[in-house]
């Protein structure tokens, strides 16, 4: 357990989906998340690493309270998330998604998008909302004139800033960022990573950073959990896991994360974990 109190914790959560291929076909069970336990401490950044199909997106849906686990429980400030309403959850926990192109309503201006959560939660009068929106827009590094823009008038990086502003407006204590920079160019990725890093320092926000990009995780995360086939196979301080992992799969992931190395070629990975794919 971490010395600081956990703001979000998962206890033995599993999620099983039943799939049918057709009327006559037998039902198949897919164990997307298997017996996962995790703790997120206050002000901490927890990196969740894994490849497609490992269950990290299902886990993020459980963390957001969007789906209930088949067994086990998610706790928000020590209260079972299943006992909280959507609104109660939203005040504490907000998502930031991968694709800022599809996560924003194309017919809403930036001001409408960012102020919407305040209106929904009935927080503040018009003047207070305006002030709060302006402050938040400043905090994410968008110019004030962007307030009257529509998403299609903004670049990918600006859209992701709008998505982050919208997530921040209720002053949540936790952000769940699912591949927040995967859809962005590297020069824009750097800006968004710096922004997330500033937020965790200045606003004391805890972050769960879900990513397949080890360099992104390495830049932000204090602690890292590696997910494979629905399970957390390894967890610990970022420096340890990313330098000296104990699991073969993590070593394989690290070996595949390429850095700049002129003429060094592509490493030959052993096929010990996965067959040719």
């Amino acid at each position: 357990m971490s010395p600081k109190p956990s703001v979000l914790s998962v206890r033995n959560a599993s999620k099983t989906y039943r799939l049918t291929a057709g009327m006559m076909a037998p039902t198949r069970e897919v164990h997307a998340v298997k017996d996962v336990s995790l703790d997120l401490a206050e002000g901490e950044v927890l990196g969740l690493i894994g490849e497609s199909g490992c269950g990290k997106s299902t886990l993020s849906r459980l963390l957001l309270g969007l789906e209930a686990p088949s067994s086990g429980e998610v706790f928000l400030d020590s209260r079972p998330i299943s006992s909280l309403s959507r609104r109660q959850i939203a005040r504490v926990l907000q998502p930031v998604f991968q694709d800022p192109y599809s996560s924003l309503n194309p017919r809403e201006t930036v001001e409408q998008a960012v102020s919407r959560p305040l209106e929904v939660h009935g927080i503040g009068d018009r003047a207070a909302i305006r002030r709060k929106v302006a402050e938040t827009i400043d905090a994410v590094g968008l110019p004030r004139r962007a307030l009257s823009s529509y998403p299609n008038q903004l670049s990918g990086g600006q859209r992701q800033r709008v998505a982050i502003a919208r997530a921040l407006i209720l002053q949540p204590r936790i952000l769940i960022c699912d591949e927040p920079t995967s859809a962005l160019d590297v020069s824009v990725q750097a800006q968004i990573l710096n922004l997330l890093n500033d937020l965790r320092k200045s606003a004391n926000i805890s972050l769960i950073l879900i990513s397949h990009n080890l360099q992104v995780v390495q830049f932000l995360a204090d602690r890292v959990a590696v997910m494979y086939l629905g399970k957390i196979i390894e967890e610990g301080p970022a420096a340890k896991i990313l330098r000296a992992p104990s699991e073969a799969y993590t070593r394989r992931l690290l070996a595949s994360a390429l850095d700049i190395a002129p003429g060094k070629g592509i490493p030959q990975l052993d096929n010990g974990v996965a067959a040719v794919a």
Binding site: E51, H212, N213, L214, R252, L253, S256, G265, I266, A277
Partner: peptide, 11 residues
Amino acid sequence: LDVTIQAQILR
């Protein structure tokens, strides 16, 4: 592609 697959395909 996933990172581990990416490395295999590039190689």
